[in-house]
Design a protein around this nucleic acid. Sequence first.
RNA 1: GCCGGGAUGGCGGAAUUGGUAGACGCAAGGGACUUAAAAUCCCUCGAACUCUAUGGUUCAUGCCGGUUCAAGUCCGGCUCCCGGCACCA
Length: 809
Amino acid sequence: MSYDFKSIEKKWQKYWEDNKLFKSTEISDKKKFYLLEMFPYPSGKLHMGHARNYVIGDTFARFLRMNGRNLLYPMGYDAFGLPAENAAIKNKIHPDKWTDECIKTMTEQQKKLGLSYDWDRLVITSKPEYYKWNQWVFTKFYEKGLAYKKLAPTNFCPKCETVLANEQVIDGKCWRCESEVEVKNLEQWFYKITDYAEELLADLNKLTGWPERVRIMQKNWIGKSEGLSVIFPVKNSAQKIEIFTTRPDTLFGVTFMAFAAEHPLVIELIKGTEKEAEIKKFINKIVVQKRITRLEDKEKEGIFLGKYAINPLTDEEIPIYVSNFVLMEYGTGAIMCVPAHDQRDFEFAKKYNIPIKEVIQSREQRTESRELKQAFVDEGIMVNSQQFNGLDSKDAISKISDYVEEKKLGKRVVHYKLRDWLISRQRYWGTPIPIIYCKKCGTVPVPENDSPVVLPTDVQFTGEGNPLAKSESFVNCKCPKCGGDARRETDTMDTFVDSSWYFERYCDPKQNKLPFDKKNISYWMPVDQYIGGIEHAVLHLLYSRFYTKALRDMGLLDCGEPFKNLLCQGMVIKDGFKMSKSKGNVVSVDDMVGKYGADTARLFVLFASPPERDLDWSDEGVRGSFRFLNKVWNLIVRGPKSEVRSHTIDENLERIKHLTIKKVTEDIKEFHFNTAIAAIMEFYNEINAHHLTPSQQLKNSIKTLVILLSPFAPHISEEMWRILGNSESILKEKWPVWDEKKLVQEKIIIAVQINGKLRGQIEIKTDAAEIEILEIAKSDDKIKKYLENKKIIKTIFVPKKLLNIVVGG
RNA sequence: GCCGGGAUGGCGGAAUUGGUAGACGCAAGGGACUUAAAAUCCCUCGAACUCUAUGGUUCAUGCCGGUUCAAGUCCGGCUCCCGGCACCA
């Protein structure tokens, strides 16, 4: 017979809710703690992959409350997005209704798991009360020049029929539907995240509570490189070519230049020349090719323009090419090429018989002339570089940069890989961009008293094009400035705008004068612990950092970094794949809770693996957790068993109790839930082996066991707590503290090694001196035989651990 | 290619600043209870050898080498797996 988890869980969930035990307020004399899990997209049913995220958080939340922290632990839904719109097309149901239904079932499941959110702070991003503030911030950004519209090459997903931000293109595919992304030139809205590139990069150093790999991923994504911009004049022309290089030390080795195919100067340079038609054909070929083979390792190709540039340092004439290996979107779209010291330039030069001029030679082997087999990219000694010859190339970088700046041939510059954030989406289910286009007045932001711009309901979801653009009532409007006929922007915002500040809204979720009140936000922010998946390392986590900094500069809040500590939990794997609806390998929360109860489900996901690692789902493992809870239940109801061999005595039990408190407390703080649970299991085993005479120690240990278990398995713990005779909720109980003095034993067992090999174990008094211990070891039967006819050279004693006797002869 | 992370029994995973490798659990095998099954409980459980005195010896933390009284842990050199970026000048 197993315990009746069904009625127990239902009973206490109701009790906790009725008594508002999870409500958080700003008024408290306790220290605040803001704990947050990444909010979900309301797609319907929860599986154990989702649940893992919340269970990690909830266990920590319950631990923090018992440790006297004033906790903010909210939940919400990232409710805008394509699936709702697709559901609308497929099932003829309005996205708003579909979303609400999904939220309802998800909330139910979250409650069934016993998650202790303050539901009064619920935030749903698809509601006008929320997205109104997306529009409000947009308008402020627009006024400050942080939001702007431009014609640019964009990533277009043909299946989702919308453009995507750079961060949302994974391996050339759409992050959501995995369709191949196309390049389209479109006029789109951007947020100027590049204004914050330097700060976003610099502040990564402050985020010591983040996993190193996330910081590195963001650093690489921002991609700062410092170098030199140099102007190369074109021979017999007024034109100048600006290039960017991080290797000024190779400036004397330039033997050709290369343009990206899209570079506007190319067309101008070849205008009217005999090669014009041929080159244009080549350029078109490359541009088309680029779209098709994004990922493949492409053969380098190029064509000589028939023009020469002048190296401003040497006055050498260098041929100009256009090539497929130069990127328009990075640097200036034109590069200087040094085949001797850059592998790509080298390959190109070999193919087109361009001279290779060495300007750096290895410090070890310096040769007069030789045929290079590949580019020499290391540091070395400068040669063929006029007054810089003989310098170390490392020093030459700054020396040549100084020289170039002095002679006004160029200047030091910084480039980033980070691009501005494209926020326009050609979809219905998102925040309308609050802009009106008037023939007379141009682009006009919607004034605050006309806001929010609400999504129209008279729309048809046909699956073709943006439904918003077809809504007459929405599109046609009056210009706020001149009152004449005007037209609304029909793009909506990227859903990542919604998730860039939801955690700030939780601090003041009902506020209707501003996104949030400064007093409340100052109290709660930053988020002390954020928990979520690694997949957002450069998406949500980067956008949120930008948004928070931008809001700070608007005076809305004081903190520049939203998330102090970050935990990235691993995936839940079943049958070799990530648990997901599309793979068909999900274990639903409903099934788990129905079969074993929430406490078992919670205990299993925490015990099976450390949070940051992937977790292999195991049905047997779940049964093991269930078995353990039943055993604890039986202990509380019936007391320890009688048939064990060696009984635990009171003194030992008392010591183990303190040890366990220490271990569990320290482990939870470090998110080592698996070892914390193991310690609780060991503690249970000791209690269960207690000799049958009831004692105060036994009673205290059982009480402690239940408290320690309660953050992990809250329902059964609450029930057992009441069975033990307590009338207050276990949630109000203080977390136990351990006494270091109680951990000390009178006698301990230490290892004895001979020449580093374990040869025996002896029992000693804890505070025994080394000489004493050596004597005990010498008289030990097992040790004795290893010491016969041997000379003791030295002994190494590690207190409370081991004695190593080094012998010779 | 570059940058991260990882590799420990049949499995998930433990092992403070280097200090008794394999905690805890799962699976497996044996036994008790039962008409039987489930549930529960007890015992065994890295490998090989040895001894039947159930104790001992040797080998074992991806591979090769080193430092050390002592290495899963530190150093040097590899192999494989996972993740990120990818012609970034």
